Amino acid sequence: MLTNPYSGRAVVRVGIMMSVAIAVGGCVASPQQGGGVSDGSRPQPRNATYACEAGGSLRVESTRGAVRLTDPSGEVYELPAAPPNQTSRFGQDGMALVVEGGEALWMHAGKQPLTCRR
């Protein structure tokens, strides 16, 4: 008797992995010529300021493969692209910045995440 290797749990696992791959693939922005951060609808300027919901602003200077971020308290961080070949996600050492659709999400370990809009 032949058995189907894709039956039962294997089908569920493959389905879940495919769903995750499709969802993640839809979130990846295409690289822009000359560096910069992509917001998915319009080009990100080299320097952008985002107004944060909790007050203050987030300044982002984009370069090829990294950003220099100034948070609302005035702290400055250099964050490399993560992974290196994309233009909307940056992070290291408990810090992450995601820029998409004119919105920036700034996450820093031990602090409340900030949602900011351009």
Rank of each mutant, 00 (worst) to 15 (best):
M1F: 05
L2R: 09
T3L: 10
N4I: 07
P5K: 12
P5C: 14
Y6M: 15
V11P: 00
V11L: 14
R13W: 12
G15A: 12
M17C: 05
M18Y: 05
M18G: 12
M18Q: 05
S19L: 15
S19F: 14
S19Y: 08
V20M: 15
A21Q: 00
I22P: 03
I22M: 13
A23I: 10
G25Q: 03
V28P: 01
S30I: 00
P31L: 01
V37N: 04
D39E: 09
S41P: 05
N47D: 15
A48S: 15
A48D: 15
Y50A: 04
Y50W: 06
C52R: 07
G55L: 04
S57A: 09
L58P: 10
S62N: 06
G65H: 03
G65Y: 04
A66C: 08
A66P: 04
V67W: 03
R68G: 02
D71K: 10
D71G: 08
P72L: 08
G74E: 00
E75L: 06
Y77H: 13
L79W: 07
A82I: 03
P84Q: 04
S88N: 15
F90D: 03
F90C: 05
G91M: 01
Q92I: 00
G94Q: 01
V99S: 13
V99N: 13
G101C: 02
G102E: 03
E103I: 08
A104K: 11
L105T: 14
M107D: 07
G110I: 08
P113K: 12
L114A: 05
C116A: 00
C116D: 03
R118L: 13
